[in-house]
Simulated assay, not measured.
Amino acid sequence: MRLHREGYTIMLTTGLVLLALNLLAYFYLFSDNSLAIVLLAVASLILFGLIVQFFRVPNRALTLHDAQIIAPADGTIVVIEETEESEYFKERRRQISIFMSPLNVHVNRNPVSGVVRYFKYYPGKYLVAWHPKSSTENERTTIVIQAKNGVEVLFRQIAGAVARRIRWYVKEGQPVEQGQEMGFIKFGSRVDVFLPLDADIKVNIGERTKGGVTVLAELKD
């Protein structure tokens, strides 16, 4: 396991603030109250541990298959439905949505190998990630990758009420590999994936996913 570079500044800042707070408590605020000092130290360690675990990147054997759509994020499947995709395809698609809690790994990965045909970033609101309008009104990115067989897969990084910072590492025209890191969303969010209607869905509502590992669907030839 390693720690993601997106967390370096936050972890360092948090560590320094907590260290300063504990030193202040030890020498001045609670110098005569050992219980308060111990409780503050324990609370500080727990808080720092939670922040560190948020930026963890576990070692995984990635699933690599040209005919399969792999989960771009860790989380829970909250939507599987046929819907109108109005930004790029402008036609009906099969949508799979993954909700990412603050306890999930928050690295985002390319669901297929291919070429990025479309990318756009939208500033927006911060509705809760499971709100029906979050995919069209929240801060978000839209990425379309054309797979090697010519099929295009669209997915969106969506900010939530807590997640207010989206990072991405792709651009239009860039070749990408399945399972490769394409971005990061800080502190809880959602990822939507839009597939052809004839895609063979392999997951169910409520199922937990592992980014880069779980097979969401298989594409038809």
Rank of each mutant, 00 (worst) to 15 (best):
R190K: 15
L45W: 09
P111K: 01
D200M: 06
V153L: 02
A61W: 02
W130E: 13
R94Y: 04
N204M: 10
I77W: 09
I98W: 06
N149F: 02
Q95D: 09
T214Y: 04
R56G: 06
T9P: 08
V203W: 06
Y28F: 15
Y8D: 04
R92C: 03
G188S: 09
R94M: 15
V42D: 00
Y122R: 02
R208L: 03
L216R: 05
A43E: 11
F48G: 06
A43S: 15
L50G: 12
D32F: 13
S134V: 00
R109H: 03
V107P: 04
V162E: 01
L50Q: 11
G211H: 06
P132H: 10
L24V: 06
I37V: 15
V52I: 11
E152Y: 01
I46A: 11
A163I: 01
Q174S: 02
A25M: 07
F155W: 05
E177R: 03
V213R: 07
W130N: 15
A161Y: 09
P132S: 11
G211C: 05
F99E: 13
R165A: 11
G15C: 05
V191I: 15
V115K: 12
Q178V: 03
V203S: 08
S97Q: 01
I205Y: 15
L18R: 02
G49S: 03
V38S: 12
H131S: 14
P72K: 00
V144Q: 00
Y126I: 08
N59E: 15
Q157F: 11
E139Q: 15
D221P: 07
Q157A: 12
S113I: 00
Q178P: 07
P175K: 04
I96S: 06
I145D: 04
A67W: 10
Y88A: 07
L50E: 09
L24Q: 10
K90C: 08
L154G: 05
Y169N: 10
T83Q: 00
D221N: 12
